[in-house]
């Protein structure tokens, strides 16, 4: 929006913009950046993707997990997602259904194919590790605007791109973080890097996102996300493949029948 104003080139608009920017508090600017990033990522409808999760321990030994992820964008509430495990083979067909909410805890159901059992599970375990990885549940859940309060810190380069640096503080009391510092590139408002600070306020993990690709000529998705845990020395790489948008998924693909459909 700011770009367009400047391109119209009228002195009045420019002056108005400058004074508006001057009067803006860091909190307002931080939120504005988050809202703009969210706006640019609105309207993708639904997506499916294959995810390889590479878990690396302190000594560098690797284990890989394969998952299928489908997501349905909901404009009036948080997104719905279905995660189906392909490997390791003993959990093949295990599926996790999440209805995320803007402010409240998410609703989650777990499907255990050996027993054919669907189990509603407590979803307040935000800070727990997802499948033994360095990603916590909250790192992978839908990033709704109201899940944080924001503060603009400054501009800095990350991944070779000029970025906005914003601090975000989780609003959910079950979060494992006191704050996150996020780098979003100024050109496309994509997350390039996030530092996570633990409950004691110490730097705990760093996420780096890269290999961004644009889909439907509009929406950017990273091909690679790496989370490094500075405390344990362990790391997890997420490799996203076969992204498909607009497959025509509906709410019926995100109910308990769909959970069982996985196997």
């Amino acid at each position: 929006m700011f770009d367009r104003w400047i391109r119209t080139g009228t002195a009045v608009a420019l002056a108005a913009l400058c004074s508006a920017a001057m009067a803006q508090t860091p909190e307002e600017k931080g939120k504005e950046i988050a809202v703009e990033a969210d706006k640019r990522d609105t309207g993708w409808g639904d997506s499916t993707a294959t995810l390889s999760m590479i878990l690396r321990n302190q000594s560098g030994a690797e284990t890989t997990r394969e998952l299928q992820i489908s997501t349905l964008e909901l404009l009036e509430d948080g997104d719905k997602s279905l995660v189906v495990f392909d490997t390791p083979p003993d959990v093949k067909g295990t599926a996790l259904l999440t209805f995320s909410h803007r402010a409240a805890d998410d609703d989650q159901w777990l499907y255990l194919p050996a027993l054919k059992r669907v189990k509603r599970i407590a979803s307040n375990n935000q800070s727990g590790p997802f499948m033994g990885s360095e990603f916590a549940y909250e790192d992978l859940s839908s990033q709704e605007i109201d899940k944080f309060t924001y503060k603009y810190i400054g501009d800095e380069e990350a991944n070779g791109m000029p970025c906005f640096v914003i601090e975000r503080v989780p609003t959910n009391e079950n979060s494992g973080y006191t704050k996150q510092v996020a780098w979003l590139d100024q050109a496309e408002y994509r997350i390039q890097k996030v530092d996570f600070y633990d409950r004691k306020g110490d730097l705990m993990k760093t996420l780096t996102a890269s290999d961004y690709k644009q889909y439907l000529d509009k929406f950017w998705r990273p091909g690679r996300m790496e989370m490094v845990n500075h405390v344990t020395g362990k790391s997890t790489v997420l490799q996203w493949k076969d992204y498909q948008f607009g497959a025509g998924l509906s709410e019926r693909d995100f109910d308990q029948n769909a959970l069982k459909r996985a196997r």
């Binding site: 509603r120 599970i121 407590a122 307040n124 375990n125």
Partner: peptide, 9 residues
């Protein structure tokens, strides 16, 4: 019936 709230089921 199951009631799920916070850490309670």
């Amino acid at each position: 019936v199951q009631y799920t709230n916070g850490s309670w089921l």
